[in-house]
Design a protein around this nucleic acid. Structure first.
Length: 385
DNA sequence: TCTGGGGTCCTAGGACCC
DNA sequence: TCTGGGGTCCTAGGACCC
């Protein structure tokens, strides 16, 4: 019988800030931007800030209205990644099977660890105090016989808690919950639940799988059927296949100047290319994303025979897509680009790099290495300065 | 108060092949 | 003269997560 623990750091970015700055402790900390940062949103709000109604994804301007005396910070990803690493390392001391699913949470397969750490609840207690003592961070924990229920359980235990779902109790546990606790059912699905009169998971439990599938589509219908029964989601344990990387930029003001948009695209391609070099993957598919002033969003992608070799090539391909897709005269709110269907490097598609390309490729690698070693030197294309 | 950035997965339709 | 069914790949858009 399998047993899983889901660990989730509480208000992670805000907690790190409070750890690093004594003056922030016990105060409402809001990470995401400064008041006055146009179009910024809340990334994380400390529990003190949540009391004022501030929450993730809320515009900073709104958060400032609700909590004008709050401490507003832009955040420091490098520091958060560092703390995340420390925590994940501690998790690894409890089981070799740690699956990190985001910067601040992970699943631990703790099947068969009883002899070392005692029963699951005891292990959870030890894990929580190890994280607290060695990193200073609070973590919430959920325990159950599958990952899905463990995840829901940790949510119930927040903040700084531990929630155990006993073996065999998964179904009753799920049925007792309101539909807004279903992980994987967001705003659109909640609206649909309302429309059909589903208030609790038990309401959904009573609906036949076929009917759920006809209402919500095949995959999501089956997912719901299993979820309210406390069963593991099928898609949960498998290895992910295709991967992608992307970068985007929201302009402070809607942009009408195509040259300026191209410059933004160049910056984005620059970032993407270096990230591609870092992860040592390859891609033949590039994509563009345009969000207009009315928030409507369009995207286009194109797959070619050739893998993307240089920053210039990427830039040209993304620009071509942009000009094909862009509806002239409309204000652009956001521009983004990405590389999809990443394949492992080395299984090279035998591209015929011309001499010049090979040379550029090497040059880009060198510049990247230098920039990594000397972050302050920042070698850039003239257009990006 | 207008709504970030970086991802994953699903769906539906079209092209193309057998 | 139009027509079937299945499989795969690609594309655009949408939902969702942290």
């Amino acid at each position: 019988m399998k047993y899983f623990l889901h660990a989730d750091l509480d208000a992670f970015y805000a907690s790190v800030e409070q750890l690093d700055n004594e003056g922030y402790r016990g105060k409402p900390v809001i990470v995401g931007g400064h008041p006055g940062d146009r179009r910024a949103v809340v990334s994380t709000a400390s529990y003190e800030a949540r009391k004022y109604g501030v929450h993730s994804a809320m515009p900073i301007a709104r958060a400032y209205e609700l909590c004008p005396h709050g401490i507003f910070l832009r955040g420091n990803m490098r520091r958060y990644k560092e703390k995340s690493r420390e925590v994940m390392d501690i998790f690894s001391e409890f089981t070799p099977d740690v699956r990190q699913i985001s910067i601040d949470e992970a699943f631990l397969d703790i099947t068969g660890t009883e002899r070392l750490f005692g029963p699951p609840a005891e292990l959870a207690r030890k894990l929580k105090s190890a994280v607290r003592e060695r990193t200073g961070l609070p973590v919430s924990v959920g325990l159950a016989s599958n990952k899905y229920v463990a995840k829901i359980a940790s949510g119930m235990s927040k903040p700084d808690g531990c929630f155990v779902v006993e073996k065999g109790g998964e179904e009753n546990f799920m049925r007792s919950l309101p539909v807004d606790k279903i992980w994987g059912a967001g705003g659109k699905s909640q609206e649909k639940f309302k429309k059909y009169g589903y208030k609790s998971c038990d309401d959904i439990y009573k609906v036949p799988e076929q009917r759920l599938c006809s209402i919500f589509g095949k995959a999501f219908g089956s997912f719901l059927y299993r979820a309210v029964r406390g069963q593991a989601a099928a898609s949960f344990d498998d290895v992910r296949g295709s991967r992608s990387i992307s970068a985007e930029h929201t302009f402070d003001y809607d942009m009408y100047d195509e040259f300026a948009v191209e410059t933004a695209i160049m910056k984005i391609c620059n970032t993407l290319m270096y990230r591609l070099l870092d992860c040592r993957w390859q891609s033949r598919t590039v994509c563009i994303k345009i969000r207009y002033e009315d928030f409507s969003t369009e995207s286009a992608q194109e797959t070619s025979e050739r893998t993307v070799g240089t920053m210039n090539e990427l830039f040209e391909r993304v620009c071509a897509l942009f000009h094909r897709k862009y509806k002239r005269g409309r204000g652009i709110r956001l521009i983004g680009a990405g590389l999809m269907n990443l394949e492992t490097d080395g299984v090279s598609t035998g591209e015929l790099f011309e001499f010049e390309d090979e040379r550029k490729k090497k040059l880009e690698k060198c510049i990247h290495e230098i920039n990594k070693k000397f972050p302050n030197a920042a070698i850039k294309k003239a257009r990006l300065v």
